[in-house]
């Protein structure tokens, strides 16, 4: 061991500080807070790279984080004379347009949050009011049960863990995952994958070429509508499903592993059709595919335990 060995850790630490210094200096700190109403409306948009939205049991909004020094952070709170603010609006713009900066937005659980960005990672948790999130790339992850949930992306992925009573999820090529269930949900994509699980009252799944997979149940009186041009459709229901099932393809195949009913040739021998009533009926399952294959089967025991 050479005599300089004991100093090596100090040397490394010194170089680490030197390397980090320009980065730290190039960031500006964001911190703004204010008392708001329990259902305040908060809007944030711009070129941030990461946004964490957290619902908390306080009637105040706090936005913290950092953005590059050359970025422009603007906005603030609507401030009526006395009393809590009913809303806030924030904007981040970087001169290059390159997404940068990390922000954390804390809002009352009942707040409504509207966020719009280019390529960004948005992670929302614990908001029971409304969420309206829009990105081009990156990803959106929502945990909890916002009363109203709208998420739109281009090639960004959308993942929702929780039961939003009303949900609209849309992408162009990004994948969409929706779990747990909803009273009224619509999931649409052009070429992304759709994975939906849970118990639903009204559910619409729509794709052009993206595959559609559903593992779940439709409540009595509810409906599941699926349409696709060429995506495969894989539907798995509980063995005790009670529904009127109506499936037709224009040129795709139908595989029925749910029960013993066989599909029949479609109109003028094109495509296939399958229609039957499972259990006592009551729910409506309606599937139309141009040339994507459709598979119907029973949920595995693992999934059944989740209902």
């Amino acid at each position: 061991m050479s005599s300089s060995a004991p100093y090596r850790p100090l040397l490394f630490a010194w170089f680490a500080i030197l390397a980090a210094a320009p980065y730290a200096a190039s960031q500006q700190v964001v911190e703004s807070r204010r008392a708001v109403t329990a259902t305040a409306s908060v809007r944030i948009s711009g070129t941030f790279a990461e946004l964490r939205i957290r619902g908390w049991n306080k009637d105040s909004v706090v936005i913290t984080g950092s953005v590059p020094n050359d970025a422009h952070f603007a906005g603030g709170f609507l401030a009526p004379a006395g009393g809590p603010s009913p809303g806030a609006k924030f904007f981040v713009e970087s001169p290059t347009g390159v997404p940068a900066g990390t922000l954390e937005l804390r809002v009352p659980v009942g707040a409504r949050v509207w966020a719009k960005a280019g390529s960004a990672t948005i992670d929302a948790e614990g908001v029971t009011g409304g969420l309206d999130l829009n990105v081009i790339g990156g990803s959106v992850h929502v945990t909890g049960s916002p009363r109203e949930l709208t998420v739109e992306a281009m090639d960004g992925a959308i993942t929702v863990e929780g039961a939003a009573p009303w949900a609209r999820l849309k992408t162009a090529s990004g994948n969409i995952t929706l779990g747990t269930g909803s009273e009224d949900a619509a999931v649409t994509t052009v070429s992304g994958d759709i994975h939906v699980a849970g118990r639903y009252e009204r559910l619409r799944l729509s794709s052009v070429t993206g595959p559609v997979a559903f593992n779940g149940d439709i409540v009595r009186g509810g409906s599941l509508d699926v349409d696709t041009h060429s995506g495969t459709v894989d539907l798995r229901f509980p063995p005790k499903l009670s529904a009127d099932v109506d499936i037709a393809t224009m040129s795709g195949r139908i595989e029925n592993a749910f029960n013993k009913r066989s599909p029949i040739p479609g109109r003028e021998g094109r495509g296939e059709e399958l229609a039957f009533t499972a259990g006592t009926g009551g729910a409506r399952i309606y599937v139309r595919s141009f040339k994507g294959n459709v598979k119907l089967s029973q949920l595995s025991q693992i999934y059944l335990k989740t209902f």
Binding site: S45, G46, T47, E93, G97, K116, A117, G118, S119, N134, I136, E152, M154, K170, A172, T188, V190, S206, V208
Partner: peptide, 18 residues
């Protein structure tokens, strides 16, 4: 057509420089 319409609508609402 609905997918195309949605796509165009979303594209027309994108923030500048994104």
């Amino acid at each position: 057509y609905e997918r195309k319409l949605e796509l165009l609508r979303r594209a027309s609402e994108l923030l500048p420089a994104t």
